[in-house]
Design a protein around this nucleic acid. Sequence first.
DNA 1: TTGATTTTGAAATTCAATATCAATTATAGC
DNA 2: GCTATAATTGATATTGAATTTCAAAATCAA
Lengths: 141, 141
Amino acid sequence: MSGEMGMFISYLKKKDLKLTDQRKIILDVFLKTERHLSVEDLYNIAKKKDSSIGQATVFRTLKLLREADIAKEVDLGDGKTRYEHKYGHEHHDHLVCLECGRSIEAVDSKIERLQDGLCRKHGFLPQRHKMEIFGICKKCR
Amino acid sequence: MSGEMGMFISYLKKKDLKLTDQRKIILDVFLKTERHLSVEDLYNIAKKKDSSIGQATVFRTLKLLREADIAKEVDLGDGKTRYEHKYGHEHHDHLVCLECGRSIEAVDSKIERLQDGLCRKHGFLPQRHKMEIFGICKKCR
DNA sequence: TTGATTTTGAAATTCAATATCAATTATAGC
DNA sequence: GCTATAATTGATATTGAATTTCAAAATCAA
């Protein structure tokens, strides 16, 4: 069992929620996919494992995964909310190209540390954050 | 005439767009309002100045103002896109409280500098960015 | 095993974002 | 000022992601 599955089980226990087959399959598939997934994307992949899984469940499970700090919301500026898992990934920001739509994952641990400091200065307890820079990428310039 | 109006006129000229009464009124009202405004919010305010102004025009004008770098998109996590003007404001991030919904504007020039550096390192030309930290504010803790 | 409670999936609903289109308006060139 | 051309407008319709609904099914503590 992966660490993420353990985190999820703990989270569900804490909230008096149940561990269902659907939730297990959705998390499993989610962790194995290295992409920014919309609800529909993940639904299409999960369906292959268990054709009875519905979109609503995927939607609800992604919300739970975000609360459990296993998933991260990403906005690529196309009007759909996308998710990525945190498994095996350092913190990173997204540089989203307005020309080709591709996104680069850029890491800077200093930024995160400064963000935490900023929160502390305001007595604010951070839970998650969203950070996307939109512009033109190297190739499109 | 404010600097912003000048910026807007230049932008419109560059794009071969026209300066209309509606656009002037919408920008004027937008600059005078110190709040995070949804399209509907701004529509309701602008309507008082000129009751013939339609939502669609407000929506389209806000888009133009963002392109002209006069407006900034803000996500307060309630599913509506909001806008704030940049007039008289330093760059700032938003700390959005998940309990009470209020948002704190927090400034850290170091973060912005690091972000620019990050972009440069990836050959990326930044145009705008979105940065919101969600958590619990001082009062709600 | 039981029973209270949660979960599920199909379908319906909501609602912000966006497109449509005929009428109106801005502006460059005469 | 006029005219032609292209852009703009606002009411309305449409889209589509996000969310809710609800009866049937599944979970799990006792």
